[in-house]
Simulated assay, not measured.
Amino acid sequence: MSPRTELQAPKPQVRPSGLGPRDLFVAIVMNICWGLNIVAVKMAVVAAGPFTAGWLRQIVVLVICLPFLRLVPGRMGTLLLVGLINGALWLAANNLSLLVSTNVSALAIASQLGVPFSLILAVLFLKERIALTRTLGIAFTFAGVALLVFDPLVAREIPGLLLTALAAIFWAIGSLLLRRLAGVPVLTIYAWIGLIGGLLLAPLTIWIEPARVAALPDLRLGDFSWILFSAIGSTLVGHGGMAWLLQRHPMETVMPLTLASPIVAVIASSLMFGTVLTPVMIAGGVMAMTGVAIITFRTVRKGGGRTRPA
Rank of each mutant, 00 (worst) to 15 (best):
P3F: 13
Q8I: 08
P12G: 06
Q13S: 05
Q13N: 11
G18K: 12
A27H: 01
M30T: 06
C33S: 11
L36M: 06
N37T: 03
V41M: 10
M43E: 08
V46E: 14
A48I: 07
G49R: 02
P50T: 15
T52H: 06
A53V: 08
W55T: 07
L56T: 03
R57W: 07
Q58K: 11
V60A: 05
I64E: 07
I64W: 08
P67D: 07
L69R: 10
R70A: 14
M76W: 13
V82W: 05
N86Q: 13
W90G: 03
A92G: 09
N95E: 15
I109T: 09
S111R: 13
Q112K: 12
I120A: 00
I120T: 06
L121P: 00
A122Y: 04
L124M: 12
L124T: 14
K127R: 14
R129N: 13
T133H: 12
I138S: 05
A139R: 02
F140T: 06
F140H: 03
T141C: 07
F142C: 02
A146H: 00
L147D: 01
I158M: 15
I158A: 11
W171H: 11
I173L: 10
L176K: 04
L177A: 02
P185M: 14
V186N: 12
T188G: 06
T188P: 02
I193G: 07
L195M: 10
G197E: 07
L200C: 08
P203W: 02
P210T: 02
A211G: 01
L216P: 13
L216R: 13
P217I: 01
D218W: 06
R220W: 12
L221W: 15
G222T: 00
S225I: 02
W226E: 05
I227N: 10
I227T: 03
G233P: 00
V237T: 00
G238T: 02
M242N: 09
A243D: 11
W244I: 06
Q247F: 12
Q247S: 11
Q247P: 05
E252N: 08
V254F: 04
T258P: 01
S261V: 15
P262G: 01
P262D: 05
P262E: 04
I263H: 04
I267K: 10
S269I: 00
S270A: 12
S270R: 12
G274L: 14
V276H: 08
M287R: 03
I295M: 09
I295V: 05
R298T: 13
R301M: 12
K302T: 15
K302Q: 13
R306S: 15
